[in-house]
Design a protein around this nucleic acid. Structure first.
Lengths: 200, 200
DNA sequence: GCGTAACCGGACCGGCCGGTCAACTTGTTA
DNA sequence: TAACAAGTTGACCGGCCGGTCCGGTTACGC
C-alpha cells in the first residue's frame, strides 16, 4: 500500500477523474489532456503526476464504469427471474454508455492489467446472466454471451449519430436490439459466433 | 467543365482514391495524408493538388460508396417483392461498410455539398424501400426509415470490436438486427423515432 | 523536337499534443 | 511553528500532422 494521499491531492484527483469522464464522454479519445486539466481546474503537470499516461487516465475512468457494471451483473445473477434480470442489466449497461461508450475498452490501447481483469470479470458475469436467461427461454438459444456483449454497445453508438437526441433515445434502440435477441421471431444465424476470448 | 486531366494525373488520382479508401477503412480518420500518399506511391503535395483538404479527399471516397448504394436502392425499389428487396439492400449496405464504415458520413466534418445531396438521395431511396417493405408486412410498422438507416450501420461497428474476425462475421449481426426489425417478435418501442432530418 | 503549361514531390511551416522538469507552494507532523 | 516531504504548476521539448510552395519534371499541342 502506498502512503495516504494528501488532502488537496485527493480532492484534485477526484476533480480530475470527473473532468476526464466528462471530457472523454464528449469528445472521445480526441479530448486533450490540457482540456481535461483546464476543466478540472488544475495544471497539466498535475494530471501526469496522478496518471503517468493519458491512457492510464482513461483506464482509470473506464475501470470505474466496468467495475460498477460488473457489480450490478453479479447482483442480478442471483435473482430468480433470469429473463428480466438480463433485460434490466442491458438497460443499465446501455444507459451508462450514454456517458462513456464502451469503445473505450478498445481504444484504451495496450490495456492496463487491472482493467483487463475487470473486463474479464464483467464479461464472465454477463455470460452467466445470458446463459441463465437462455435456460429460462427469455433469450434465443443460438447466441452467445459475447454476442450480447457486442449488441449491448449498439444503442450508444446509434444515438451518437443523431445530434440533439432526447436523453432517453437509446431506449428505443435497445428495445430494437432486444427484440432481435428474443426467441420469438428468431431466424437462423449464419456465421458462428466468434470465440469467447476474441474481443478487443 | 474543366480541362481534361493529363494521363499521369488521372492515373495518380485513381491510385490516390484507392489508397485513401484502404487507409481510411483501416485506420479511420486517424489515417494521415502522408501515409495515404505513400501507399498510393505519390508525393504528399500531389494529394493536396487533387483535393484541397483531407476532408475533401474523404468526401470523395465516401461519395463513391454512397452513390453506388443509392443506385442499388433505386434499382431494388422497383422490384415486386419489397421485403426481400429491402433485405437484399441491407445485406449490400452492411457488406460495403466492412470496407468503409458509415461513421465517415459523420466524421467528414462540415460536409461537402455534393456529398450532402448524395446522402439525401440515398436516405430518400432507403425510406422508400422501408415503407414498401412495411406495406408488404415484411418489416414492423412502428419503425421509420431513419431507424433502419441507423441500424444498418450496426454490423460494421460490432465487427470492428473483434480482431481477426472472419470476413463474413457481419452477416451474423445483420441477421440479429434484421430479426429485431421483423414484425413477428415485436414489442412496443418506447421513445418515438427522431425526426427524419436529424442525422449527422 | 520544342516550348510550355500542367504536374510532381519533398522540404518546410505553424499549430497541437503528450509528456518532462525545475522552481515554487502547501499540507502535515513533531 | 518550523522544517520537510508531498504536491502543484506552466514553460518547455520533440514529434506528428495538415497544408504550402517552389524548383524540377513530364505529357501534350504544334
Amino acid at each position: 500500500m502506498t502512503r495516504a494521499l494528501r488532502a488537496d491531492a485527493a480532492r484534485n484527483r477526484s476533480l480530475l477523474l470527473a473532468a476526464a469522464a466528462e471530457e472523454f464522454a464528449a469528445r472521445g479519445m480526441e479530448a486533450s489532456v490540457a482540456d481535461i486539466a483546464r476543466r478540472a481546474g488544475i495544471g497539466k503537470g498535475t494530471v501526469f503526476r496522478h496518471f503517468p499516461t493519458k491512457d492510464d487516465l482513461l483506464a482509470a475512468v473506464v475501470l470505474d464504469r466496468v467495475d460498477s457494471l460488473a457489480a450490478l451483473a453479479r447482483q442480478l445473477y442471483v435473482r430468480d427471474d433470469p429473463g428480466p434480470a438480463l433485460f434490466e442489466f442491458l438497460e443499465a449497461a446501455a444507459g451508462k454508455q450514454q456517458q462513456l461508450d464502451f469503445s473505450f475498452l478498445r481504444d484504451a490501447g495496450d490495456i492496463n492489467d487491472r482493467l483487463r481483469d475487470a473486463r474479464e470479470r464483467l464479461f464472465g458475469a454477463i455470460v452467466g446472466l445470458v446463459s441463465r436467461a437462455q435456460g429460462a427461454g427469455a433469450i434465443r438459444a443460438d447466441i452467445t454471451g459475447l454476442d450480447v456483449i457486442l449488441m449491448m454497445c449498439v444503442p450508444a453508438h446509434v444515438v451518437s449519430f443523431v445530434p440533439d437526441a432526447p436523453p432517453d433515445l437509446w431506449r428505443r434502440y435497445l428495445a430494437l436490439v432486444v427484440d432481435g435477441l428474443r426467441p420469438e421471431g428468431a431466424h437462423p444465424l449464419s456465421p458462428p459466433a466468434p470465440g469467447t476470448d476474441s474481443v478487443r
